[in-house]
Structures are given as C-alpha cells and as structure tokens.
Design a binder for these strands. Sequence first.
RNA 1: GGCGGGGUAGCCAAGUGGUAAGGCAGGGCUCUGCAAAAGCCCCAUCCGUCGGUUCGAUUCCGACCCUCGCCUCCA
Length: 474
Amino acid sequence: MGLSLYNTLSRQLEPFSPLDPTSKHVRMYCCGPTIHDYAHIGNFRTFVLADFLRRYLEFRGYTTTHVMNITDVEDKIIRRVRETGATLRTYTAVYESAFLEDHRALNCLAPHHLPRATESIPGIVELIGRLEQRGIAYRAGDGSVYFSITKYCGCGHRYGQLFPVNLEEMRPGERVSSDEYAKESVADFALWKARVPEDGDVFWESPWGQGRPGWHIECSAMSMGLLGPSFDLHLGGEDLVFPHHEDEIAQSEGAGLQSAGQPFVKHWVHGAFLLVEGRKMSKSLGNYYTLRDLLARGFSGREIRYLLLTAHYRDSFNFTTEGLLGARTALERLDECARKLAEIAGPLATAEVAPQAALLDACTARLDEDLNVSAAWAEVFDWVRETNRKLATGTLGPEHAAEALAAWNTLSAVFGLRPPPGSEVPEAARRLADERDAARKAKDFKRSDALRAELLALGWTVEDTPKGWKLKPR
RNA sequence: GGCGGGGUAGCCAAGUGGUAAGGCAGGGCUCUGCAAAAGCCCCAUCCGUCGGUUCGAUUCCGACCCUCGCCUCCA
C-alpha cells in the first residue's frame, strides 16, 4: 500500500499517485504568503504541512517540484504602500525576506520555485487574453476584465468542483467593493483590475489598459507556467477552497490548455485552521502570534514545527503555550535518546548502516494513512521507551545502536526535526566539570554544587553518569 | 440561513462494532551525596446529551446541545 490522501475534489480518501502513473515525479503547488505583514503561526501551519508532505513524498521514493508563489501585489499591500509612501518593491521586500527567514526558521526546505506575482505579469496577461479569446472573459464598463461563470459553464465546464456553490443564492455582499459594480453576475470575479487613482504607481500596461492582476489569476498563471497545465498536487489553507481555489480551477480549465480529459490539478489538499489558546486567532483577543513573536519568547523554530506536526492536518488544532512547553520536553526526550544511541554506536554513528526497519515501517504505515502524524508519533515514543529500556540494561551493542540511530535520523529528517548539531564543550567548561568531579570524589559537595552553578551560568547542565560527567547545553 | 469539520482524561491528541494509542502535566518507587537522565508502577469503568439498531457502540443510525470554519479580505 502506498500513500493515501484526502482529496477535496472527491471529498474522500484516495490512493495518491501522480497524473502520470508511471512517473515517480510529483509536481506540487502551494499557495504562498501575501507579504503585507509578518506571517502568523496559522499561515505557517499550511507551509509546514506543504514542506512535510514534500519530505514525505521524497521519503516514499518520489522526486518533487515544489512551487510556492509570493503574492506581492494586492489591495492591502497597495494601501500600505500608499500609507507609508514606500514603493511597492521596497515595501514588500521587507516582508518577503522576513517571511523567507521565518520559513527557514521552521526548517522548511526552500521550494524549487518562488515566483512573485509582479514578475509574472506577462504570463498573467497571456492567460487573461486566452480567456478573452474563448469568450469567457469580458471587459466591463469600469475597464476591468472579469471572468464569466455563465460563459464558462456554457463551454461545458462545471463551476463548484471543490465547493458546492449555489449561484442562484449568491447575492452581492457588503464586502464587494464598489469598483466591481460592473460585473455581469455576482459570482464573476476580476481577472484584471483597471487602474484607479488610489493605486498610485502600482500598475502595469496591458491590452486592457493600465491595471493590475486580480487575486486568483496569478496562481493559475504561475502554477501552469512552472508545472504545466495539469499537475499533481495543490495545497492551501481550508479557507482558500472557496472562492480562491474554485476560481483557479475555473480560470485554468477555462483556458483549455489541458489535454483532453486531464484536470488542472489531480489532488487538492487543504489544511485546517489553527486555534490559539482555544480561540480563533485575532489581534483583539491578544492571541495573534506571528512566528517572530514566538521566537522572541524563546521558543525555537524546531519546537514550533514539532507542535504543528503533532496534530492531523485536517483537524483544527489548538496551539497553546502549554503545548509549546510540552513540545520542548518531548523533543528533549527524543534528543536524549538519540544522544545515548550515538554514544553506544561510537564511530558507527556516522557510518553508513542500514536503518532499523521496524520503526520506519511502523511510521510509514501510519503516515501512509493520510499523514496520520499523531499515530506515527505514538510509534516513535513506543520505540523510544523500548530503546531506553535496552540502553538502561546495557543490552544494546554498537551495531544495533547505530541501526536504531540511523532509523531515527531518517525519520526525524522526514519530519524536518533533526536535532541541531551539538556544540563543542569549551575547554573552560571541561575544566570546571573535571574540578567538580574531583570535589565530588573528595566529598566536598558544597564546592561541587558551586561548580555546578558556575557551569549552568556558562550555559551547561551537568549530569553525573557511571562514566563520569556529561555536559548538555542550556 | 446554506454547506462542511469537531466534541475522547488536568491540557494536547490518535483510534476501533468486542470493550480506550501517544505526548505533556501529576503521584509513587529504583538509581543519585543531592540532582539530572533513564527505568518500573499509577493516573478515562469511559469517549457531548438522549434515544435506536446489535449478543455487544465511544465506534452505525436519528434527534438535540455545544464549538470551529467557509459562504467572495483571510493559511
């Protein structure tokens, strides 16, 4: 059995396979950030999911092409640009680099492509042009270009593949901006927004005059541009199901670039929302955490990533400080076990040995079931207890320790949670630890405790083992 | 109102038509000069409520309560 994933398109669990069943290559696209501000922990749940799924696919023998777009032009950004007097690029550059820094802090692999919307205008214009040629896009009185859902459906396409929309019941909401009065139908959406005075310098030339792309079209243009008109996997937060992803399908399939019978995307994966301290994250509740807030509070990216990867991606997850503290303890336990294994394995720890199969097989079986990370962690911790037991009774030889360590190294890399390399113990600390040992042997416990405090001040925790002292960071 | 997720121990969170994984927290013990780490043991007669189906339901069905999300800003 291989990996099964829930597909929003069919609303059921499906065996995962690429569009080309003979291929071991997966082309995946994840809707990236809108860089108008620092990204929050909820945003990162989705990006960590994408990264984890990519790593898991690679572990399961696929190669991947991972694309994540950067939305660097949209209403909020334009407003901020106007307010701050910055240029578009100087404004977004700050948040883009902050985002990429945060993304790395969570140990997410860099996507193979990170296209920016503003650098994809030619492809966007071309795609809109094609929709216009096919009669699916129309130019309205306000100069903007809209997508006609009626025409789209008239061409034999279905609108509402991901989300059961009732077009009859759609009524203009309060949030529909006044510049969209010109649409033929409420559900129609903007492909190209005509330039308005508030846009300032933010505009591009196009066959429809000056303006800028609508929100949905950039993803269609960038994903198809880099991955082809049909690709395997598309991810995003659950709130993007409608309208964003639905509209992406409409635009992409409306352009008719796919081979007969091929969909725009085979498999849609959506991550559920995060609650923070039991409530929906909101600035007024004071539970709005950006990644930077959490790092500033002393939590590591690794701890945050671990916590995000303890719950199933399709369930809403309650992200709490208490959980973060628990993540810290759990990781320490994992790291401690690995450290002991490395000690026993000795030189074999870094040698090429076959990973112990039991742990990997058990976790693979769990993760194959729609990425059941919780069940996989249960396997891991059962293994940790088992391993510690052998470690405690001294029944683990170097070879077996090396194999066990290799298994954990492999698995922790799949989770993106490999421990950071241990830092060298400085000479000064070693000397203090030796002195302390001497004091202990002389039963001078007062001095021994004083030395322990000194070591702690230097950032080292000392543990006494049958083989002498052991120093651990922090 | 429409649609879709959830409600499992102090907290987080899996799972199953046959009687409840795992993590964190907590308690006891072993080890230790004291610790730390590790090990051992304990910690849900019960899975939102009420009915139904069944030999048997937390797991299936129905109703109800609560909660979260989406319904054109939104991961």
